[in-house]
Write a protein that binds this DNA or RNA. Structure first.
Length: 721
DNA sequence: ATCGTTGATGGTAAC
DNA sequence: CATCAACGAT
C-alpha cells in the first residue's frame, strides 16, 4: 500500500500527528501551521492504513464553511464522493441525530430549528403571556440568559431558584415557560439541539452504543471554541472506546463571550491522560518579523499551554505603524496604500482591512468608495436572516409543519391581508388557553364563525393558500413550490412595491432563493423541503453577489480567524477600541483581546500595517485614545512608523510607552510653514492653514482653492510651490 | 397601512 | 453623533 501521498508533503511534527497510534491525540496547532492539512491527512491515514471505512469517521467543525472545505479536500485526496463521511458542525450533527431519532428524543417528527431571530420573538411572546415588563427585563438579556444556560448544559429545572435573587427568579420563570412553549410548538433552538442529543444518549444507552460502534474515530477542529455542553456531548459519545483527534490552539480562543471554554483543552488532557500531545509550531504563512511580533504579544498572557511559532522563511518587511490625525485620515491612508499596492501589480483581494468592531467599517468604506476601490464587507446580515427570505421561508415552513407558530406569526399578515394586531391577539389567546397551535386556533375561530370582515376573508385566504401549496407539494419540486409560494402569497409584489432601492434588492434575493432551491440536492429518502428549512437555519449561506470581482476584504478580527492575506491592515489599534473599553477591567477579558491581536497579526503573510487615530469621533464625542498596548508589546525592531513623506525606524518604544515616539520636530520634517501655498496631486492647489506636531506626527490642514471646505491631511504628499 | 417621532444604544457573532 | 427599532398619530 502506498502511503507516500499522505505523509510525504508533511513536516516531522505533522507526520507525527497524522500517523499517531495512541488512542487519543491532542494537536496544538499554531496559526498557519497546516492544521487543516493535518486533519485531512489524518483522515486519509485512518482510512487507508487503519482500514477505517468512511462511515466510521466523524469530523466536527465550528462553521459549515470549514466543514465544506474539509470535505472537499478529503474527497479530492481519496477520490471519493464524501457522502458516507459524517462531517459537520456540532449543531448540524446533533440535528441529524434528532431527525433520525425524534421519537426517542421526545420530539414531534416535524420539529423545526429555531434561529436566534425567531427565538427572540418567541421569548417576547412568552414574556407578554407572563405579563413581565419588557423594559425592565430586556428580551435580549433573557435570550442571553437562556442560551448561556443551555451552553452550560442547564435546563430550567437544573437551576436552583433562589428567592433572594430576583433576577434569577424572573429569568427562570421565563425560561421554564419558554421551554414549555418550544416543546408545544415543536421548536428546537440551537442550544437545545446539543442539549437534547446529549440527553438522548444518556437516556438511550443502546442508541449510544450503536453510534459508539459505528464511529471508529472522532476528529474535532477548533477545539478551543467548544463550550461545556459540546465537551460533555463529545465525552459521552467517545466513552471509553472511541479514539479522538482534537485540534486546537489555546492562543486563538476568542469566543469566551459566547460560552467557549478554553480550559476544555486542559480538561481533555485530564480526562484522557493517555492522549498524545503534538505541537505544530512551524509556520508556513508569515515572515519572521510578523511571527516575532505575534509571539511577543501573546507571551504577555498567563497560563498558556506554550507554543512558539517559527519559520525558515525570510525576515520580510518591517511592520508599518501609521498615526493618523483622525479616523478619516486613517481611512484615507489605508485606501492610498491599497491603491499603491494595486499599482504595483497586486490584487485587491490580497488585501484585508481588519477592525475590532463593525462600526469602524463605515468610514473605511467611504474612503474606498471615494477612491473607487471595490471592496467587500464580510459579516453583517446573513442571507437567511434577510426579511424577504425569512418571509418566503415562513410560508414553506407552514407548508411543511402547520403548527410552526413562529412561521405563522411571521407571515399571516405579510403581505397585509387584514389580519391586524387585534385578530392575532384573539388567535394567541385561544392558542395559549387551549394549548394548541395558532394554526389550529385559526381553524377553530373560523369554524365557530367568530371572525368577520376583512380578518375573516384574509384568514380564509391564507389558510387556503397554505393548504393548496401543501396539496400540490408532491407534484412540484422544491423550486416550483417556492416559486408558487412567493407568487401566490403576493410576497413578491409586496417586496417589489417597497420604496427605495431595497425593493429591487429584495426581489433579487427572492430570486436567488429560488435558484438556491434548484441547486439543492439531498440524499434519497430525505424530505428535501424539511432539509432545506433546517439548512437555512443552520447555515450562514454565502451571500454577497459581487464576490467574483477583485475586491478588498473588510471584516472584523473575529471573522478573520482561519483566513490569510498577503497584505493586512489592523485599523484602530487604540486603547479603548482595541483592546475594547469593555475589556479593560478584567484580566481574563484582556487576555482574550490579546488573543484577538494575535489572531490579527498572524493573518498577515507578507506585509502588516497597523493604524491608529489620535482623535476619533465616537458616540458623538471626540475621543483621544492612546496607542494600543498590543502595539507597544511588539518589539521595537519589528516596527517602523510611517510619517509624512519619510519613514523613521522607531526607537525602542516598549521602554517608554507613554512618551512621544520621536524627538525631532514634525514641523521641520514636513518642511512647511503657515500660509504657504502647496500642491496636492489629487486636490490641487491650496494654502496651509495649520501645521502642528504632537510629538507623534504632523497634522497639516490645507484650504484648497476649488472647494470651500478645507481638508485635514496628515500624510498627504504635498509639494511646495 | 404608512409615516414620522421618540428613545435606547453604541461588542465580537457561529450555529 | 447617528442609527434603528418600536410606537403613536394620521
Amino acid at each position: 500500500m502506498d502511503v507516500s501521498p499522505i505523509i510525504d508533503p508533511l513536516n516531522e511534527a505533522q507526520r507525527e500527528a497524522v500517523t499517531a497510534q495512541n488512542a487519543h491525540l491532542l494537536v496544538l496547532a499554531g496559526a498557519g501551521s497546516g492544521k487543516t492539512r493535518v486533519l485531512v491527512h489524518r483522515m486519509a491515514w485512518l482510512m487507508q492504513v487503519d482500514q477505517v471505512p468512511a462511515t466510521g469517521l466523524l469530523a466536527v467543525t465550528f462553521t459549515n464553511k470549514a466543514a465544506r472545505e474539509m470535505r472537499n479536500r478529503i474527497s479530492e485526496m481519496m477520490n471519493l464522493s464524501g457522502y458516507g463521511l459524517w462531517f459537520g458542525t456540532f449543531h448540524s450533527i446533533a440535528h441529524r441525530l434528532l431527525r433520525a431519532h425524534w421519537q426517542d428524543a421526545g420530539l414531534p417528527e416535524n420539529f423545526q430549528v429555531l434561529d436566534s431571530d425567531d427565538q427572540l420573538r418567541l421569548i417576547k411572546r412568552v414574556m407578554r403571556d407572563l405579563q413581565i415588563d419588557e423594559t425592565r427585563w430586556p428580551p435580549k438579556q433573557v435570550q442571553w440568559f437562556i442560551n448561556g444556560q443551555k451552553d452550560e448544559g442547564l435546563r430550567a429545572d437544573h437551576i436552583q431558584d433562589n428567592p433572594g435573587d430576583h433576577f434569577v427568579s424572573v429569568m427562570l420563570k421565563i425560561y421554564r415557560q419558554y421551554e414549555k412553549q418550544c416543546q408545544l410548538s415543536g421548536l428546537v433552538d440551537f442550544g437545545e439541539l446539543l442539549l437534547r442529543s446529549h440527553e438522548l444518549w444518556l437516556k438511550k444507552p443502546a442508541l449510544l452504543g450503536h453510534y459508539q460502534r459505528r464511529f471508529q474515530h472522532i476528529l474535532v477542529d477548533e477545539f478551543q471554541d467548544t463550550n461545556t455542553i459540546q465537551y460533555a456531548w463529545l465525552q459521552v459519545l467517545a466513552g471509553q472506546r472511541v479514539p479522538m483527534t482534537i485540534v486546537g490552539d489555546d492562543d486563538q480562543s476568542i469566543y469566551g463571550w459566547r460560552g467557549a471554554r478554553i480550559e476544555n483543552i486542559q480538561k481533555f488532557q485530564q480526562d484522557f491522560p493517555d492522549a498524545r500531545l503534538v505541537r505544530l509550531e512551524q509556520n508556513y504563512r508569515s515572515t519572521q518579523t510578523i511571527l516575532k511580533a505575534a509571539n511577543a504579544v501573546i507571551a504577555n498572557n498567563q497560563g498558556r499551554l506554550g507554543k512558539e511559532l517559527w519559520t525558515d522563511g525570510p525576515d520580510g518587511e518591517l511592520i508599518n505603524l501609521y498615526a493618523a490625525f483622525n479616523e478619516q485620515d486613517e481611512a484615507n491612508y489605508i485606501a492610498d496604500t491599497i491603491s499603491a499596492w494595486v499599482d504595483d501589480g497586486n490584487l485587491r483581494s490580497e488585501a484585508a482591512i481588519l477592525y475590532r468592531s463593525n462600526a469602524q467599517s463605515r468610514v473605511l468604506e467611504e474612503a474606498l468608495l471615494r477612491q473607487g476601490i471595490p471592496y467587500r464587507v464580510y459579516g453583517g446580515l446573513r442571507f437567511y436572516d434577510r426579511q424577504e427570505i425569512r418571509n418566503a421561508l415562513g410560508y414553506l415552513r407552514l407548508v411543511h409543519y402547520r403548527h410552526d407558530d413562529a412561521a405563522f406569526e411571521r407571515v399571516v399578515n405579510t403581505p397585509p391581508r387584514g389580519i391586524g394586531a387585534k385578530s392575532l391577539g384573539e388567535l394567541r389567546e385561544l392558542a395559549t388557553g387551549q394549548g394548541i397551535s395558532l394554526w389550529q386556533a385559526a381553524e377553530r375561530l373560523l369554524e365557530a364563525g367568530a371572525m368577520k370582515g376583512r380578518a375573516k376573508t384574509g384568514l380564509q385566504q391564507f389558510i387556503g393558500l397554505i393548504e393548496s401549496l401543501a396539496a400540490d407539494q408532491d407534484e412540484l419540486d422544491l423550486k416550483q413550490l417556492t416559486q408558487r409560494a412567493i407568487e401566490g402569497s403576493g410576497l413578491r409584489d409586496h417586496h417589489a412595491n417597497e420604496k427605495g432601492e431595497k425593493a429591487q434588492a429584495r426581489v433579487e434575493n427572492l430570486e436567488e432563493l429560488v435558484s438556491a432551491m434548484a441547486d439543492f440536492e439531498v440524499e434519497d429518502g430525505i424530505d428535501p423541503l424539511s432539509e432545506f428549512i433546517a439548512q437555512a437555519a443552520l447555515d450562514a449561506g454565502e451571500s454577497q453577489a459581487d464576490e467574483h470581482q477583485d475586491s478588498v476584504q473588510l471584516m472584523t478580527l473575529h471573522s478573520a480567524k482561519g483566513l490569510e492575506f498577503p497584505l493586512v491592515f489592523l485599523a484602530g489599534v487604540e486603547e479603548g477600541l482595541f483592546p475594547h473599553s469593555m475589556s479593560l477591567e478584567e484580566p481574563g477579558r484582556m487576555e482574550e483581546e490579546r488573543r484577538l491581536a494575535y489572531v490579527g497579526i498572524t493573518r498577515a503573510m507578507k506585509r502588516l500595517v497597523m493604524t491608529y487615530a489620535e482623535s476619533r469621533r465616537l458616540y458623538g464625542q471626540e475621543k483621544f485614545h492612546a496607542l494600543s498596548r498590543f502595539v507597544r508589546e511588539v518589539p521595537g525592531d519589528c516596527i517602523q512608523e510611517v510619517r509624512l513623506r519619510n519613514t523613521v525606524t522607531r526607537p525602542a518604544l516598549t521602554q517608554r510607552p507613554n512618551e512621544g515616539l520621536f524627538d525631532s520636530t514634525p514641523m521641520a520634517d514636513a518642511g512647511l510653514q503657515l500660509g504657504q501655498r502647496v500642491h496636492h496631486p489629487k486636490f490641487g492647489e491650496g494654502v496651509v492653514m495649520n501645521c502642528e506636531g504632537s510629538g507623534h506626527h504632523t497634522r497639516v490642514q490645507v484650504n484648497f482653492d476649488d472647494g470651500a471646505k478645507w481638508l485635514v491631511l496628515a500624510y498627504a504628499p504635498l509639494e511646495k510651490l
